[in-house]
């Protein structure tokens, strides 16, 4: 598979979860595991551009795919637009659910017309649980990142 643009070739047990592979085998611990049963969304990664719960998927199922994780978002020190918006709007607190949210928002950014309403943002991201923020400032961040508000730099 290709992870964040780098080819990864290795053998794994058939039952190894993708989340365990990313975290334990190739050391990408930015993907967090919050519930192991597909509800919380903390472990969300993109598989060929589509969001997936890495805790509900076997590593072997990603064979031949392009996998994107939070580690691939920033350009060196430079935060991506979505990351910068989360920082500007205080869209994170403990930061545990954040990588999954960032990946879900990245997918949304690619698929949704610009300037989504706050209701649409909430609907589309309702599969990612956050216990710290109360969501308001996450919605602010997504609004900013997806261009529906001129507040802050894009």
């Amino acid at each position: 598979m290709e992870v964040n643009g780098r080819a990864v070739t290795t053998e794994v047990d058939g039952r190894m979860l993708l989340s365990d592979f990313l975290r334990g085998v190739i050391g990408l611990t930015g993907t967090h595991v919050g519930c192991e049963h597909g509800y919380c969304g903390s472990c969300t990664v993109l598989i060929d551009g589509a969001s997936a719960r890495s805790c509900l998927m076997l590593a072997a199922q990603a064979n031949g795919s392009m996998v994107s994780t939070v580690e691939g978002l920033a350009d060196g020190e430079q935060l991506s637009i979505v990351q910068q918006a989360f920082k500007s709007c205080h869209g994170l607190q403990c930061g545990f659910c954040t990588p999954g949210l960032l990946m879900a928002v990245s997918e949304m950014a690619a698929e949704t017309a610009s300037s989504p309403s706050r209701d649409l943002i909430r609907e589309q991201l309702a599969g990612n649980l956050c216990r710290c923020t109360g969501y308001h400032q996450i919605v602010d961040a997504v609004e900013q990142a997806l261009g529906s508000t001129s507040r802050g730099p894009r």
Binding site: G30, H32, L92, C94, P99
Partner: peptide
Amino acid sequence: EDDRLLKGQGRFVAD
């Protein structure tokens, strides 16, 4: 603290 958390560079016990 945001940059490291946003980049997946936080260090949690499970990591």
